[in-house]
Design a protein around this nucleic acid. Structure first.
Lengths: 341, 341
DNA sequence: TTGTAGGCGTTATCAT
DNA sequence: ATGATAACGCCTACAA
């Protein structure tokens, strides 16, 4: 037996209760034009009594705006995703927007269906988090409808798609400088089992900072190799001129620490370790007293939503968007002077 | 300059292109009634050519159904939340529903505003994840509108609110039995820094299983104490009759392992350790060869969405919902025979 | 300042 | 089987 839903209270109900016309009721609530004070009060009272809330679908139909932000994840896997959702949601909600979240679960074959779904929903703006492959086909309907589309990804933007990314260069440079000041000459950036991770984006930061500070920057990744963290750490330390410092994704921080311990290396006496983290792990990192480059991905989400809202209002930005000032260098007990050679 | 959006293609455009009326076009697409084969083909072709997608807001207005599931989080913090969103989203999308996600960010003062927002959206069903406090006030509008509301929480349901939870008793009992078979007599369940965690829900499972298997079950939590994991582990092991096995939330698994190592205890020779995890950590756990009680929270999300969709169709269930069969006992190298006293 | 009426895009009812 | 038409709830010219 299909449930027959009680009809929710509508603006007409409010108008009747207040003894005015729907348009007056509407104006009293939207404040588009002035209404007589006493009438406005009566309308507001009626709203209160009846528990009226405007139907956003109807309003959206009329206004050609659904007050919905579409967030598309290629995959929903890291705690960073959570913070992004949280930050996006916070900013969206403040602006009276809602957040429609979807995930392709790593499957590109899902894209078409998911994008069509968003288009059917008539989201007012679209944000893609680490999407893969060519999107132009999927994005065409949005472009035609004038829906601003954003992507967090490594490739630059293109017509109909603005790329948005976080700039962590300041904190990264500070970290490199701090290590240089401690006498370190060789630093290895460690990214294990990751293909499209922030590690890739951070490359230029570190390269530039390393060059300026006179530190040699190497990288190790196991993305194709299938080696364990411990094997990679061991291999790296067995090289002729081994690094004296590591930069590590925080999700592998403890693995690397354990690997170093197992190899008989003390931190920070023999090796310094810097974690690349986000604020979600901040408390953990502090408990560990770890030195970290901290990225506030909650705030990043907020800022991303801000950019989306702005684009809905005034059209998409003319250039790709870089977001600054969200990362901090936090020294900690896992770094120390470079060991004497 | 406010952007003037190009008008997206509507059903009328399709009808014109196909040379039929809107009603025929609508019928051809919804399949409500049969239309002549050639006309249906022409309509489908027009849809293809024009890239038409029905406006869900308009459809929702007409159908009094928005095809939207509202998911409310008290806080968006654990990786489990991510899996839940992912699973909910997968099931929702299959049913052509979208997922509206919101988080109170741990702040009960946000509830009213967030619930009103969902109500304005006219979500078809509502799911609350670990909500706090009294919800009846917030839920009243949904109840009046006949919107099924669910909550994942410890307290039982009430009128207008169905409680949904996962039943992990089978796997938990298996774990206890496995430990009993290995000769363990005293087991401590360890929950650090958590108030409303699954640890609380698991109590009865373990209590019953322990009683049946003849194992004494204790619990340690630091929720108010502010002790470190290591201090708690040390204190527990210093008791007159120390436990020979621990059950630990996976997020603290490595902390407990490290604490045991620091205390000179070998795993599993001196102490056995069982992790309580979810499938997100499964690969990690396997790499660690850890013995775990694994919960598939992605699948849990799917099932939750299924319950919501069913409730939209046929009204809310008459009783609170327990979801079974989503947890597995996975033995591993972190358990072994109890040490001889 | 207020009310009347039209329309947003869709589906369902009613004639044809 | 098809087409005209009303209705969903809201906002906004336009008229009063």
């Amino acid at each position: 037996m299909a449930t027959e839903r009680p009809r929710p209270v509508t603006l007409l109900d409010v108008a009747n209760e207040a003894g005015v016309s729907v348009s007056t009721a509407s104006r009293a609530l939207t404040g588009a034009r002035r209404v007589r004070g006493d009438l406005e009060r009566r309308v507001r009272d009626a709203v209160e009594n009846l528990g009226y809330r405007p139907n956003e679908a109807a309003r959206g139909l009329r206004m050609a705006r659904t007050m919905t932000l579409g967030i598309f994840f290629h995959r929903l896997n890291s705690p960073v995703s959570l913070d992004l959702i949280d930050g996006l949601g916070a900013a969206a909600h403040e602006a009276r927007y809602s957040l429609a979240v979807t995930s392709a679960r790593g499957d590109k074959a899902q894209y078409a269906s998911l994008f069509q779904h968003f288009y059917g929903q008539r989201v007012d703006a679209l944000m893609m988090i680490w999407p893969r492959g060519d999107l132009s086909g999927h994005l065409a309907p949005f472009a035609r409808a004038g829906v601003p589309a954003f992507a967090m990804r490594w490739l630059p933007g293109e017509p109909g798609l603005t790329v948005i990314s976080a700039d962590n260069s300041v904190a990264s440079t500070e970290a490199v400088n701090a290590l240089a000041a401690l006498g370190h000459k060789r630093l290895t950036i460690f990214s294990h089992g990751v293909l499209w991770t922030p590690a890739t984006l951070r490359r230029p930061y570190f390269d530039r900072a390393g060059e300026a500070a006179g530190i040699e920057i190497r990288r190790r990744t196991s993305r194709d190799s299938g080696f364990t963290v411990r094997e990679l750490v061991a291999d790296e330390l067995a090289s002729p001129e081994p690094p004296t410092a590591f930069v590590v994704q925080y999700s592998e921080f403890s693995d690397v620490m354990a690997a170093l311990a197992a190899l008989g290396k003390r931190v920070p006496d023999d090796v310094s370790v810097v974690g690349f983290t986000d604020s979600k792990f901040a408390s953990t990192a502090q408990r560990d007293q770890a030195a970290v480059i901290d990225v506030d991905s909650f705030e990043l989400g907020r800022r991303m939503a801000g950019v989306m809202l702005e684009a809905i209002e005034n059209g998409p930005p003319s250039e790709d968007v870089r977001i600054h000032g969200l990362s901090r260098w936090i020294p900690g007990g896992t770094i120390g002077p470079a060991p004497k050679a």
